[in-house]
Design a protein around this nucleic acid. Structure first.
Lengths: 344, 344
DNA sequence: GTTAGCACTCTAACCATCTGAGTGCTAATT
DNA sequence: AATTAGCACTCAGATGGTTAGAGTGCTAAC
């Protein structure tokens, strides 16, 4: 456990370093208003903090820089008590004003978040697996191609085009659609394939002529993997951070970001509240120099998606955590109100 | 007009520089197999070419580097005669195999193009303005929200959610949809707003109770600007090019690329064949250090979209032009076949 | 326990020097 | 008249030495 004085100095060093990105020396600290100790004393404390692993030197006679352990301690013990205010109303207004369409809200939020912080924001769109089918439509395009449109109760629209042999008559197609609509209404998208094979298949065989053939084609429309929507804001923001003025550090990172699956995996874990992952705590090599802050938004007890900010380990944790907290609360509440107003 | 010898040496210098990215000296050239002149002679020719504006020096005693005028001459006069073969079958197979869904094809093409060249590829998706409405669907979600779905004859699906006051009865909604479907079938998306205001509006007023109110809301679904789809492949590829190892050069570029409108504007001009824009020929400041090669693909005489590659002015013009040419032809042909097979 | 003082360390900036690749010019060669 | 060898010259970039300044750790005094 750190003494009061150690804690204070750790905090001052981290705050200073977060702002300046330069190693912090004892003299600079002793000059701060909140510190009334001489440089020599500070040096002793700093040596202790270094021995405890909270600080590091870049070379033998340099000032101190927070270690990852230092940041971790700072995040766990220093920040909680002193949440920053301000900017919170921006989040509230944003969510209130933009909530016409969830996708737009999410896109806009990602932008605002990265503008406010100068870090890269990543938002995992609302998880559509748990939403239920509202209506199914098949629109024939030509003799043997059609597009299937799925509308969910949350207003989300999915569509897939598929082809089929000309033998299927428009009449049969209509029958198929009717049966599917009748049986699949209210089923969650995730369960569609299962319900189709178990319940709907046999039914169709009864009513639709030569069904096996049609089924081969129809299947492709329903059994497709559903992509998770990913919204990224401010990809270039990190280029302005001094720690990334080396191309090679950036290259690997941007290549990682091009791979959507990998990014989705980063954020997909279930969680409550805010989660902070600092430097090497991250599982993916490409972001070992980064910190990742994630928050989730819910509908009821169901986690709908994740909001995240990615920046250097030298991150404005206090500000970022406060912002994410606010946005996640606002989104959760907006979601609740929206569903309620729309009679769920 | 250049002499035979000048042309040969210009070509050799450009080819060498494109490969090595280093200024080319007289000695290096004289050692090449296709050159049987001494370094001194080459130097004289190089001095002439520099005076004519085709070559430049980076400093008074450096080797020569092609100027933009040099590249322009190379592209206009040297390349045409010697088109590279190879890789063309990749393009053909790609288009043939992936053409289930146009969006997927375009996405995949963008990736392949950038993998093959190590430049960034940009494809402007098929212009949907000219496609015609096939079917319109309005799916009510709750008492006062619904999603409108537009299906075009090319199989493209657009959807917009909108809200309306509870006063509109499901009955009215159905009437509206019927009238719209009846009247708007076969109308191009671009003309929808026009036709609605001119023809459909009065009709609705006759049949639908209290129509003015509903219209206010419905309007929002139809009069939205339709975003042009943009596919970008290999955004990070340029980071590997030696000319961009300076963060500041890259930052402006990436910021420009984040602005979709700007990128769309870059490519939107109508054109035939391949168009090469070198360095300062580009109108946008952020890519004054880049070359942009564009090609278009058509359906019939109608230009459907644009394919482009963006790289340093030191670009493998020969390879890139050949590739783009092939892809644009393949896409045009595939589009033709697809429409034909589907009975247009 | 705190602080002043001092020797010590290391980085970063600056400068001088050197090397090598390349040039332009001139005079000799073909 | 065109080509080439030879040579003086230029400049970027690498190498190495010097210095200034910021910072440290330690010791001795307060």
């Amino acid at each position: 456990m750190l003494t009061e004085r150690q804690l204070l100095i750790l905090q001052v060093i981290i705050d200073d370093f977060i702002e300046s990105a330069h190693p912090v020396g004892s003299r600079a600290i002793s000059k701060k208003d909140e510190i009334s100790l001489s440089a020599a004393t500070i040096r002793n404390v700093m040596a202790d903090l270094e021995e405890l692993g909270f600080l590091e030197k870049t070379h033998s006679s340099s000032g101190r820089v927070p270690s990852e352990k230092g940041y971790r301690y700072y995040v766990d013990n220093v920040i909680g008590s002193t949440m920053a205010k301000g900017n919170l109303s921006i989040m509230r207004d944003l969510v209130r004003d933009e909530f016409i369409d969830f996708e737009k809200l999410v896109q806009k939020s990602a932008e605002v978040l990265s503008d406010l912080t100068n870090y890269t924001s990543i938002i995992l769109g609302p998880e559509i697996f748990e939403t239920k089918l509202k209506q199914l439509q098949i629109v024939p395009l030509t003799d043997h191609s059609a597009v299937a449109i799925l509308v969910t109760d949350s207003g989300h629209v999915e569509h897939r085009s598929f082809t089929f042999p000309a033998e299927i008559s428009p009449n049969d197609l209509e029958k198929i659609v009717n049966i599917l609509n009748d049986r699949l209404h209210g089923i969650s998208l995730a369960r569609l394939p299962e319900v189709i094979t178990k319940e709907v298949l046999s039914l169709m065989q009864m009513y639709v002529h030569d069904f096996e053939k049609s089924y081969q084609y129809l299947k492709s429309a329903f059994f497709q993997e559903q992509p998770v929507k990913l919204y990224i804001g401010g990809k270039t923001k990190l280029l302005t951070q001094p720690e990334f003025n080396d191309i090679n550090k950036i290259r690997a990172f941007y290549q990682m970001m091009e791979n959507e699956d990998q990014v989705v995996n980063l954020l997909k874990a279930p969680q409550h509240g805010i989660k902070v992952t600092i430097g090497n705590e991250n599982k993916i090599d490409e972001i070992k120099d980064f910190s990742l802050i994630t928050a989730s938004y819910q509908f009821g007890s169901e986690q709908m998606g994740t909001i995240a900010l990615l920046g250097p380990t030298r991150m404005e944790y206090r500000k970022v955590i406060t912002l994410l907290n606010a946005l996640s609360n606002e989104m959760t509440e907006a979601l609740y109100l929206w569903y309620k107003n729309n009679g769920y």
